[in-house]
Design a protein around this nucleic acid. Structure first.
Lengths: 349, 349
DNA sequence: CTGTTAGCGCGTTCAC
DNA sequence: GTGAACGCGCTAACAG
């Protein structure tokens, strides 16, 4: 049979309450007693019963991390950073918290399902990463969920996601996608480009919209034409980048630059251009977003906007653990940094 | 205050037990009653208390997925596939299980910690992915943990990991790293290569050892020299691939091929070769392993061994859920497939 | 098909 | 500094 706290108590010749106290370390216990208890724990190979403990304490050691696509390093890097701040001491019972990542696959339903599941588990905290779907019904549903979670004592942190106006309890670390997008396009404009293709991400997503808005703001600021044919939407993957680039070239072969929604898409774009016999950046410049590790290895290396994914994730993790003060007002904007590399150059004349 | 099952029962004018039954769906309940209960659940916005439920039932809906590096698509892809099979119906209470991925970062201690945490939570199942560390002490510790978990009713599945002899309860879906490594090197030998550099993964890891053994078996089978200078160990990342390739070139500039431990490392190798003024494959051929999505986009496209990560992950997920029969003997070997692409060719003469 | 009765294993008041 | 007693919210036998 499975060993319980009572067994440990019997072996250590103390009461169950005492065992509980040394395990949780939240109460003064005589050193000798503590040692005796720990020895018993060790000898019996006792493992605390999480559910029982959570039930009695009305809170658990679980911390949920929601990501849109776990196979995408963008999320993997953030998730790793968040989890690394959660694993450490700080929780109840031995000081170990269980940071777990949940893959929504970008689906609003799964996002809600996971939130409900975490709510059911009485999670200590929840971190939502990446862009949100811009559907009003869904946004309200999520906001309502977040409010309930917060009410129940679950800390809610958004990382790389815009603040949720309807759920003000949620701390938000937002990426400045708009500013980054603008910087990037201004860089290209500065090089002399006037005919810029733009591969946007999936519609109805905040990240997509903000990056695109930044791009357009740059164009507008310089009085540059924004031909609707030059913008096309796709998924955040390489194949989509490949296909949409071919589409852009079909629509207007005279484009001199292609700006992609993210680095992965940009790589697909590069492949499509090469396969079309175009040189980068001599014939067409290409730019990405995020500065994922592989971007510097592309040939030529990718001009992009670096987002401090690890730093932001770590900070979100610490806030979720209550180890760092939330930013004033509950909202902080994290800026990107333009990384100019070989994939962009002056347009051909 | 938080709504409890009793509140729902009162509102629906039934007993708590009945509510529990409709929620778990494991017991016959009259349609009209069920509907009344569900309505009450909805009206009260009731969410089951997971810990309480797990305590009473002595099992939880949690399924843990352990990965070595969540930022590496190799693991991301497997984790996504596993999780997708877990999310669906099949669990208790509404049929939803909570599939969660835990990032060990390749650290044996964290691996054990996570296993303990999952044990504490009375997880329904645990899936361990990727290679294991080959340290005897650690291996025994993990095996002991797995045995305990299995005893407590947790299903244990290894995915892309060799069987654990000391924990025979664990179902294993193993990748044929040895066979894949051998095929790959034989392909190069067939092209005429006789001086082959090999960038192995971190020492003391099963994956590293098996792939290297396959490589050496191919060399031996063809009576080819295996100069110790031609093998070097590194991490499973791109930077390591870059640096170790430079090291290989330093040791012997006459190498005509470089075989990398995985695709990521191979990309680093390609960059190092290019930066050294060598053409691929004209001067040096390069091969990887895994066939991650980006490999086909490298220039030239990478010759590699495709591992069916998604399929294997999905299968592991189904087995963990008890929805698919484990393989006979509890062990199945998953083979890789050689993908010949542009990065390998005949050696220069 | 449904209600009643006991715990599940632990945290937390209280006393001592 | 330590023990005793109670209850967290739910499920699992039993009855009926």
């Amino acid at each position: 049979m499975t060993v319980t706290l009572a067994d440990v108590a019997a072996r250590a010749q103390v009461s169950p309450a005492t065992v509980s106290r040394v395990l949780n370390g939240n109460y003064p216990v005589a050193a000798s007693t503590r040692e005796r208890v720990l020895r018993a724990v060790d000898e019996l190979d006792y493992v605390l019963n999480g559910p029982a403990s959570s039930l009695a304490a009305a809170t658990s050691d679980l911390v949920g991390i929601l990501v849109n696509d776990i196979a995408d390093p963008f999320f993997g890097i953030m998730a790793a950073a968040i989890q690394s701040e959660i694993g450490g001491p700080g929780g109840r019972a031995g000081g170990e918290r269980l940071g777990v990542v949940c893959n929504t696959g970008g689906s609003p339903e799964r996002e809600l399902t996971y939130l409900t599941l975490l709510q059911r588990q009485r999670a200590a905290a929840v971190v939502l990463t990446g862009g949100a779907v811009e559907d009003n019904a869904h946004a309200s549903a999520v906001a309502a969920k977040l409010r309930k979670l917060a009410e129940a004592g679950t800390r809610v942190v958004l990382c790389g996601r815009p603040p949720a106006p309807e759920a003000a309890e949620a701390i938000a670390l937002t990426f400045d996608n708009r500013g980054g997008g603008r910087q990037l396009t201004e860089h290209l404009i500065g090089l002399g480009h006037r005919r810029l293709g733009y591969i946007a991400g999936p519609e109805e997503r905040t990240t997509t919209r903000h990056r695109l808005e930044g791009h357009r703001a740059a164009l507008a600021a310089h009085g540059i034409d924004d031909d609707p044919r030059w913008t096309v939407h796709g998924r955040y993957d390489r194949r989509s980048g490949y296909e949409t680039t071919l589409e852009l070239l079909r629509r207007d072969p005279s484009l001199t630059a292609v700006v992609a929604a993210n680095d992965t898409v940009a790589l697909g774009a590069c492949a499509a251009l090469r396969d079309s016999g175009l040189r980068i950046p001599d014939d067409v410049s290409v730019a990405g977003f995020d500065d994922l590790p592989f971007s510097i290895d592309a040939v030529p290396a990718l001009t992009t906007v670096r987002l401090p994914l690890s730093e932001a994730g770590a900070r979100a993790g610490r806030i979720a653990m209550g180890r760092e003060e939330p930013p004033p007002g509950g909202i902080a904007t994290v800026r990107g940094e333009l990384m100019v590399r070989g994939s962009t150059g002056a347009p051909r004349v």
